[in-house]
C-alpha cells in the first residue's frame, strides 16, 4: 500500500506529533508514504476568496500525485475535503477541467483525474481494515476512554465522500478507537464543530464554539479527546489554556491524535509517538501504561 502523503500547511509546522505518529503507525502497518516536496497549500483558504484559484491550487497538488501514479493520503480533514471536492468536480465537469487545465499550463502542469484522495483514518478503516489492524495489536488500552471528535470535513459535505460513513451518525472513528480495547464514550454534541474555521475572523466566537465541546467531553469523563485534524487540535489543545482563562474553566484535558492512540496499541514505544509535543501532557495515560 503506497500513498503520496499530503501534509498541507498546519501539520508540518504545528502538528509534528500527528505527523510523527502517523508515519510510525503507517510503517508498522506496511503503508508506504511518498513525500512530494512541491505539494503546497491545498487551496482551502482561497475558496473564500476566489473559487478558480482554489481549484487551480487543488488541481496542481492533485497533478503532482498523478505524475507519480499515487493516491493521496491526507492527515488534515480540511485538505481531504477540498482536494476531494476539486477532484470530483474536475473529473465530472469536462468544460471546467479544460478551463482549469488551460490556466494550469502556466505551471507546465495538467490535471487528468487519475487518482483518489483519502483521509488517513479512512485509509486505516477501508484500505488496511480493522481485522488487519487487530492482528498487529500488542497493548490493551481497555482502561481508557476517549471522546471521538470527528470534526467537520472528514465526512462533510457527504456528497463528495461516496457514502463513506454517515455524518449524522458516524461510527468509523469510534470503531477505530474501540479496536484498541479503549472505550469510545458517548457525549453530547459529538458531531460539533471545533470553531477553527473562524479563529482568524473572530477569536472569541471560535473559542466559544470550542468550549461547548470541551465542556461536554469533560463532563462525560473522558481520559482524552481523540481527533484526526490538526486544526481541531489547535482549538482544543492549543487554545485550551486560553479558554480556561477566558471562561474561568478548568479542563486539563489531553487531546490526542488517533495515530498516537493506535500507536500505543500497536506497541510502538511512547517516546516515538510525539507525546512530548502535546501541549496538555497526557501524564496519567502514560503513567498507567508504564
Amino acid at each position: 500500500m503506497k500513498y503520496a502523503l499530503f501534509l498541507g500547511c498546519t501539520v508540518p509546522v504545528r502538528a509534528l506529533n500527528y505527523e510523527v505518529s502517523a508515519r510510525k503507525v503507517a510503517h508498522k502497518l506496511n503503508i508506504e508514504f511518498v513525500d512530494i516536496n512541491d505539494f503546497s497549500c491545498c487551496g482551502f483558504p482561497v475558496k473564500s476568496v476566489d473559487r478558480d484559484t482554489f481549484l487551480l491550487m487543488a488541481a496542481k497538488n492533485l497533478s503532482l500525485a498523478e505524475e507519480k501514479g499515487l493516491d493521496i493520503c491526507s492527515l488534515c480533514s480540511a485538505c481531504t475535503s477540498v482536494l476531494t471536492e476539486a477532484n470530483k468536480e474536475l473529473k465530472e465537469d469536462e468544460d471546467l477541467r479544460k478551463g482549469i487545465n488551460k490556466e494550469l499550463s502556466v505551471l507546465g502542469r495538467k490535471y487528468e483525474g487519475r487518482i483518489k484522495v483519502k483521509h488517513f483514518a479512512r485509509i486505516l478503516y477501508e484500505d488496511v481494515g480493522l481485522d488487519k489492524i487487530r492482528e498487529n495489536l500488542r497493548v490493551d488500552l481497555s482502561k481508557f476512554s476517549f471522546a471521538a471528535h470527528y470534526g467537520c470535513h472528514y465526512l462533510k459535505p457527504s456528497e463528495i465522500y461516496e457514502g463513506f460513513d454517515d455524518p449524522e451518525n458516524p461510527k468509523t472513528l469510534d470503531e477505530l478507537i474501540e479496536l484498541t480495547g479503549a472505550k469510545s464514550i458517548p457525549y453530547e454534541d459529538k458531531k460539533g464543530c471545533c470553531g477553527g474555521g473562524i479563529l482568524g475572523i473572530d477569536e472569541m466566537t471560535a473559542l466559544k464554539v470550542a468550549k461547548t465541546k470541551l465542556d461536554h467531553v469533560k463532563s462525560a469523563g473522558a481520559d482524552a479527546v481523540c481527533l484526526i485534524c490538526p486544526f481541531c487540535s489547535i482549538m482544543y489543545e492549543g487554545s485550551q489554556k486560553k479558554m480556561e482563562r477566558e471562561f474561568e474553566a478548568e479542563y486539563n484535558l489531553p487531546v490526542l491524535y488517533y495515530p498516537q492512540i493506535l500507536g500505543l496499541a500497536l506497541g510502538i514505544p511512547q517516546d516515538e509517538l510525539g507525546f512530548r509535543m502535546n501541549r496538555v501532557k497526557p501524564r496519567e495515560i502514560i503513567a498507567q501504561l508504564s
Binding site: 501534509l7 503546497s40 482561497v46 476568496v49 484559484t53
Partner: peptide, 23 residues
C-alpha cells in the same frame, strides 16, 4: 530533531497562480 524529513519551501507555483488570477 523528531525524525521528520525537512521540507524545502516552494512558493513559486502559488505566486504564479496568484499573479495570473489577480489574487
Amino acid at each position: 530533531k523528531v525524525g521528520l524529513p525537512p521540507i524545502e519551501e516552494t512558493a513559486e507555483d502559488t505566486k504564479k497562480l496568484f499573479k495570473q488570477e489577480g489574487v
